[in-house]
C-alpha cells in the first residue's frame, strides 16, 4: 500500500470519532519507481492531509518532506520529486495500520492491509 491510499483510509470502528490518520508500523518498506506526473501532483496537493503524509513517510524511513508547505512550492521540481516519492513510490509491504483512537491493529501483509472489522466493531 502506498501513502496516497494511506492518506484516504481511516479507522471506522464503531464509536471511533477520529480514526484518521492511521499510525503506521513498518516492518518492510519497498520503493517502486513510478513516472512523475506534474499535473496529477498539482491537482492532488490540495486534497492531501499534509501532516499525515509527512508523519507517514517518516515512519517509512523517508524524512525529506517539510513540516509546513506553501502551495508556491509546487513550482519547485525538487519539491515535486519529494512529494511524488512519498506519495506514490514508498510501499508498505509488511507491517500494520493502527487506529489512533483505540490502538486496534490492522495487519498489512504482502502489501495488502486487512481492514475487516470484527462483529462487535461494526
Amino acid at each position: 500500500m502506498r501513502l496516497l491510499s494511506h492518506n484516504m483510509l481511516s479507522s471506522n470502528i464503531k464509536g471511533v470519532t477520529n480514526g484518521f490518520p492511521l499510525r503506521i508500523e513498518a516492518e518492510k518498506v519497498v520503493v517502486k519507481q513510478v513516472d512523475l506526473n506534474v499535473r496529477f501532483l498539482k491537482n492532488m496537493f490540495p486534497k492531501i492531509e499534509w501532516k499525515a503524509l509527512v508523519e507517514a513517510s517518516r515512519t517509512m524511513g523517508y524524512a525529506e518532506l517539510p513540516e509546513e508547505v506553501e502551495p508556491s512550492k509546487l513550482d519547485s521540481r525538487d519539491f515535486l520529486q519529494k512529494f511524488h516519492h512519498a506519495l506514490l513510490e514508498l510501499v508498505l509491504e509488511e507491517g500494520a495500520l493502527v487506529c489512533p483512537e483505540t490502538g486496534r491493529r490492522f495487519p498489512v501483509s504482502k502489501g495488502i492491509p486487512n481492514m475487516l472489522l470484527h462483529e462487535d466493531e461494526v
Binding site: 500500500m1 471506522n12 480514526g19 495488502i112 475487516l116 472489522l117
Partner: peptide
C-alpha cells in the same frame, strides 16, 4: 489493494 467490507469502509 485493501481488504475491507465496502459497507464498513472508513
Amino acid at each position: 489493494y485493501v481488504q475491507c467490507n465496502i459497507k464498513n469502509l472508513g
